[in-house]
């Protein structure tokens, strides 16, 4: 079986797996820089308007944000367990854990959705639609626009990660992956961890502002 999956341009399976893993890490590095640009925007405006910016963001619900942090960290943990078990050839267990992680992802999105609904209700919306405070001082609208944009972009990544997790879980059940064939499982796991890492930074920047 393992001989079949070696594609012709590689010498050995080990090198082929290394190639796939390296490519995934590079993709993640690239993806992180995508968020990096937004972190730079955040830092720049927070440097320019330290008080207004923080005041605006202070409105966010710390409780919901922290719940989401715990949810994502736990989902990351279950994904890591899943990757661990596929190496021990326990594909069903992995599938189960990945399904659980997908559900955690869904919980995250639901909590995020509640928050968004709340913001929409209060008119705490991005850019020109922001009317939560009348005549907001410079920087407030920027803070909210950034909040919406960065969390929404992160949310898209969560959705993408959930789809990947679900697909891999199904393939695990079908017996596609096992102890000797798990780079795809591992790479999907890596992607989910990246989503987690991004949130680890978004959380203090957008919720823990006093």
């Amino acid at each position: 079986m393992s001989a079949q999956r070696l594609v012709e341009q590689f010498e050995s399976l080990e090198k082929q797996d290394h190639a796939a893993r390296l490519a995934m890490w590079m993709f993640l590095g690239s993806e992180t820089l995508l968020f990096g640009a937004l972190f730079a925007v955040y830092a720049y405006y927070r440097g320019m308007y330290p008080d207004e910016f923080v005041q605006a963001l202070h409105h966010n619900s710390v409780a919901l944000g922290t719940t989401n942090t715990v949810v994502l960290i736990t989902s990351s943990f279950t994904v890591a367990l899943g990757v661990h078990f596929i190496r021990e050839n326990k594909a069903r267990l992995t599938a189960g854990l990945f399904v659980v992680s997908t559900l955690f992802g869904a919980v995250f999105l639901v909590v995020k959705g509640i928050e968004y609904a709340h913001h929409i209700h209060e008119n705490a919306l991005p850019s020109g639609m922001y009317t939560f405070i009348d005549k907001p001082p410079a920087g407030v609208v920027l803070g909210y626009t950034l909040y919406w944009f960065m969390t929404a972009l992160h949310g898209l990544h969560v959705i993408a990660g959930m789809i990947m997790l679900a697909v891999v879980a199904v393939l695990c059940l079908k017996g596609r992956y096992g102890a000797h064939r798990n780079v795809a499982v591992e790479n999907v796991g890596l992607y989910w961890h990246l989503v987690d890492v991004v949130w680890i930074f978004l959380w203090p920047l957008f919720y823990l502002t006093d």
Binding site: V41, Y44, Y45, M48, Y49, E52, P126, S127, G128, P136, P137, A138, G139, V140, V141, L142, T145, L146, F149
Partner: peptide, 11 residues
Amino acid sequence: LSLFNPRYGGD
């Protein structure tokens, strides 16, 4: 989106 718009203090 107005992230760079001076109207909202953007640079």
